[in-house]
Amino acid sequence: TIDDAFRAIERAIQAENEGRYREALKHFLDGGEMIVTAAEKEASQKVRNLLLHKGKEVLEWAEHLAEWILE
């Protein structure tokens, strides 16, 4: 659900702030994927587009974090 997705993102932010970057990455990926999944089930085109945009933002952040971890 969207609530689960945002809880995962909150955990990711907390982990990132505490320097637990790999854990943060996992939570960002989980949250982003949950948002995209919820968007695919959404009946309203406007809400679907907003959710897809937010999911994409979260997944892009996860990608940047992963690249930073690997440096």
Rank of each mutant, 00 (worst) to 15 (best):
T1F: 10
T1R: 09
T1E: 09
T1Q: 07
I2M: 08
I2Y: 06
I2W: 07
I2S: 04
D3R: 14
D3W: 15
D3F: 14
D3K: 14
D3T: 13
D3Y: 14
D3P: 06
D3E: 13
D4H: 10
D4F: 05
D4K: 11
D4L: 12
D4M: 11
A5H: 01
A5W: 09
A5F: 09
F6Q: 04
F6A: 03
F6L: 08
F6M: 09
R7D: 04
R7C: 08
R7G: 03
A8N: 05
A8K: 09
A8Q: 08
A8S: 05
I9F: 08
I9Q: 00
I9G: 00
I9K: 00
I9D: 00
I9E: 00
E10A: 13
E10H: 13
E10N: 10
R11N: 05
R11G: 03
R11W: 08
R11E: 05
R11V: 05
A12P: 02
A12V: 03
I13D: 00
I13G: 01
Q14M: 07
Q14L: 09
Q14V: 10
Q14E: 08
Q14A: 10
A15D: 02
A15G: 03
E16L: 15
E16I: 15
E16H: 15
E16V: 15
N17I: 13
N17Y: 09
N17Q: 13
N17W: 11
E18L: 08
E18D: 09
E18G: 06
G19S: 07
G19H: 05
G19Y: 02
G19V: 01
G19R: 04
R20H: 07
R20Q: 04
Y21D: 01
R22P: 04
R22G: 07
R22I: 11
R22W: 12
R22H: 11
E23G: 02
A24L: 07
A24G: 01
L25W: 09
L25V: 10
L25N: 00
L25M: 07
K26D: 04
K26F: 08
K26Y: 08
K26E: 08
K26G: 05
K26A: 09
K26R: 11
H27R: 03
H27E: 07
H27V: 03
L29G: 01
L29S: 03
L29R: 13
L29Q: 08
D30C: 14
D30Q: 14
D30N: 11
D30S: 11
D30G: 05
G31N: 02
G31Q: 05
G31M: 06
G31C: 10
G31V: 12
G32Y: 15
G32I: 15
G32R: 07
G32D: 01
E33C: 13
E33D: 09
E33F: 14
E33H: 15
E33Q: 14
M34N: 02
M34C: 07
M34H: 03
M34G: 05
I35Q: 02
V36D: 01
V36S: 05
T37Q: 14
T37W: 09
T37G: 08
A38K: 03
A38E: 04
A38R: 04
A38I: 13
A39F: 09
A39W: 08
A39P: 01
A39R: 02
A39G: 03
E40V: 14
E40Q: 13
E40D: 09
E40I: 15
E40W: 15
E40N: 13
K41L: 08
K41D: 06
K41Q: 10
E42G: 05
E42Y: 09
E42M: 13
A43F: 10
A43D: 08
A43Y: 07
A43K: 13
A43W: 11
S44T: 10
S44N: 14
S44D: 15
S44W: 10
S44A: 07
Q45H: 08
Q45S: 10
Q45K: 10
Q45T: 10
K46Q: 11
V47N: 05
V47I: 14
V47R: 09
V47E: 04
V47G: 04
R48Q: 04
R48S: 03
R48K: 09
R48P: 00
R48H: 04
N49R: 09
N49Y: 07
N49G: 06
N49P: 00
L50D: 04
L50K: 08
L50S: 07
L50G: 04
L50W: 15
L51E: 01
L51K: 00
L51R: 00
L52S: 03
L52E: 03
L52H: 03
L52C: 14
L52P: 01
L52M: 09
H53E: 11
H53C: 14
K54R: 10
K54T: 08
K54C: 15
K54W: 15
G55H: 12
G55M: 13
G55R: 10
G55C: 11
K56Q: 07
K56M: 10
K56S: 05
K56A: 10
K56L: 11
K56E: 04
E57N: 06
E57Q: 14
V58T: 01
V58H: 00
L59Y: 08
L59G: 01
L59V: 04
E60R: 12
E60Q: 11
E60W: 09
E60P: 00
W61T: 03
W61D: 00
W61R: 07
A62N: 00
A62L: 07
A62P: 00
A62M: 08
A62T: 03
E63N: 12
E63S: 14
E63P: 00
H64C: 12
H64V: 07
H64S: 08
H64G: 05
H64D: 04
L65K: 00
L65R: 00
L65D: 01
L65P: 00
A66R: 12
A66L: 13
A66E: 06
A66K: 11
A66M: 06
E67D: 10
E67Y: 11
E67V: 10
E67I: 11
W68H: 05
W68I: 07
W68R: 06
W68C: 07
W68G: 02
I69P: 01
I69R: 00
I69H: 06
I69C: 11
I69L: 10
I69F: 07
L70W: 11
L70Y: 08
E71F: 08
E71Q: 12
